[in-house]
Lab assay of single mutants.
Amino acid sequence: DESNKPILLPNESQSFERSVQLLDQIPSYDTHKIAVLYVGEGQSNSELAILSNEHGSYRYTEFLTGLGRLIELKDCQPDKVYLGGLDVCGEDGQFTYCWHDDIMQAVFHIATLMPTKDVDKHRCDKKRHLGNDFVSIVYNDSGEDFKLGTIKGQFNFVHVIVTPLDYECNLVSLQCRKDMEGLVDTSVAKIVSDRNLPFVARQMALHANMASQVHHSRSNPTDIYPSKWIARLRHIKRLRQRICEEAAYSNPSLPLVHPPSHSKAPAQTPAEPTPGYEVGQRKRLISSVEDFTE
């Protein structure tokens, strides 16, 4: 099969070098950035008060330690540790928490760990991170309901609301924008112990962030949302095809390698009803078989 044979790379090609550099910018793992907010007593309706908090309760602090690993920003190499735009020179604080497994990295933009500057009256330095995160974990210690939209931002799609209760338990629920209701189930609340709260809140936030990324990708319907490693695979396959075309153009005697095509017509299947918005969006999480067989 010609399409699977190794090909020689061009010795000097600026377009090839640019493509390789672009490939280096696509990590081999999925990345997520999640905002974390603490809401104190009497702050449920005040964005400024929430963003001005420099610490929270003892249970909130224990919750943070379970979310991930504490890292010092100045020691991080952005090409190895995903920071979601946090500055490593102290502009966004000294520490944050991050978490990773074999296929993804997540960083938490924690408002109480970011510096509260006197010259920044409206807390814009914090909002440029927190307001651009799709998902926020809100530790609501106010005793009042927290409403979506209290923290203004164009991309605040989903809130994971943590409400501490007695007996070391917590109520965990989801809020989302109306255009996200087909992807996020907000109907079920959970009672979770303090011990298990970081794991549950983190998983709910990661799932909500993946759904938000799919939702946000609708602005470019021709580019369905893939995982990062599938995006790398697609980029490599496009690069291979372009090299083959350039080689055939410079030397017409060489065969032009095309991806294999299936001449056999697909079997006719009964027509199915058109899937609704929710089903269609969830299918976009699934990769096409052509990603692996071309």
Score class of each variant (00 low, 15 high):
residue 3 S to I: 10
residue 3 S to R: 08
residue 4 N to F: 12
residue 6 P to D: 14
residue 7 I to D: 11
residue 9 L to I: 13
residue 10 P to R: 09
residue 10 P to H: 11
residue 11 N to F: 06
residue 12 E to L: 06
residue 12 E to I: 07
residue 15 S to A: 12
residue 18 R to W: 07
residue 19 S to W: 15
residue 19 S to E: 15
residue 20 V to G: 06
residue 21 Q to I: 04
residue 26 I to N: 06
residue 26 I to E: 11
residue 29 Y to A: 04
residue 31 T to E: 15
residue 33 K to N: 15
residue 34 I to N: 01
residue 34 I to P: 01
residue 34 I to W: 00
residue 36 V to W: 00
residue 37 L to G: 01
residue 38 Y to D: 01
residue 39 V to M: 02
residue 39 V to H: 01
residue 39 V to N: 01
residue 41 E to R: 08
residue 41 E to S: 05
residue 45 N to K: 10
residue 46 S to D: 14
residue 49 A to D: 06
residue 61 T to M: 11
residue 61 T to F: 14
residue 65 T to M: 09
residue 65 T to G: 12
residue 69 R to C: 14
residue 70 L to Y: 04
residue 73 L to S: 15
residue 74 K to H: 07
residue 77 Q to S: 11
residue 79 D to Q: 06
residue 80 K to E: 12
residue 81 V to M: 12
residue 83 L to F: 07
residue 85 G to A: 11
residue 87 D to R: 15
residue 88 V to H: 06
residue 89 C to Q: 12
residue 89 C to V: 07
residue 90 G to H: 09
residue 93 G to A: 13
residue 94 Q to V: 09
residue 97 Y to A: 11
residue 98 C to E: 15
residue 101 D to M: 01
residue 102 D to P: 13
residue 103 I to R: 03
residue 105 Q to D: 09
residue 105 Q to Y: 12
residue 106 A to K: 01
residue 106 A to V: 13
residue 106 A to Y: 05
residue 107 V to A: 06
residue 107 V to G: 02
residue 109 H to I: 04
residue 110 I to E: 04
residue 116 T to E: 06
residue 117 K to E: 10
residue 118 D to V: 11
residue 118 D to F: 11
residue 119 V to I: 10
residue 120 D to H: 11
residue 120 D to F: 12
residue 121 K to Q: 14
residue 126 K to A: 06
residue 127 K to H: 08
residue 128 R to K: 11
residue 128 R to E: 11
residue 128 R to D: 10
residue 129 H to C: 07
residue 132 N to S: 15
residue 138 V to N: 00
residue 138 V to D: 01
residue 140 N to H: 01
residue 142 S to Y: 00
residue 143 G to V: 01
residue 148 L to K: 11
residue 151 I to D: 03
residue 154 Q to S: 15
residue 157 F to S: 10
residue 157 F to Y: 15
residue 157 F to P: 02
residue 158 V to D: 00
residue 161 I to M: 07
residue 165 L to R: 02
residue 167 Y to Q: 04
residue 167 Y to N: 04
residue 171 L to F: 03
residue 172 V to C: 03
residue 172 V to G: 00
residue 173 S to C: 12
residue 173 S to Q: 15
residue 176 C to P: 02
residue 178 K to R: 10
residue 181 E to W: 04
residue 182 G to T: 08
residue 183 L to Y: 15
residue 184 V to I: 07
residue 184 V to C: 10
residue 186 T to L: 06
residue 188 V to G: 13
residue 190 K to L: 14
residue 193 S to C: 04
residue 194 D to S: 01
residue 200 V to T: 03
residue 203 Q to F: 04
residue 204 M to E: 03
residue 206 L to E: 01
residue 211 A to Y: 09
residue 211 A to H: 12
residue 217 S to C: 08
residue 218 R to N: 10
residue 218 R to K: 10
residue 220 N to H: 08
residue 221 P to M: 04
residue 222 T to M: 05
residue 222 T to R: 08
residue 227 S to G: 08
residue 230 I to P: 12
residue 231 A to L: 10
residue 231 A to M: 08
residue 235 H to M: 14
residue 238 R to L: 12
residue 239 L to Q: 09
residue 239 L to R: 05
residue 240 R to N: 13
residue 240 R to S: 14
residue 247 A to G: 09
residue 249 Y to I: 12
residue 250 S to C: 14
residue 252 P to T: 09
residue 252 P to I: 10
residue 256 L to N: 15
residue 259 P to K: 11
residue 259 P to L: 13
residue 261 S to V: 15
residue 261 S to R: 10
residue 264 K to E: 15
residue 265 A to S: 09
residue 266 P to Q: 14
residue 271 A to W: 08
residue 275 P to S: 09
residue 278 E to T: 07
residue 279 V to S: 15
residue 283 K to Q: 12
residue 284 R to F: 08
residue 284 R to D: 13
residue 289 V to N: 13
residue 289 V to T: 12
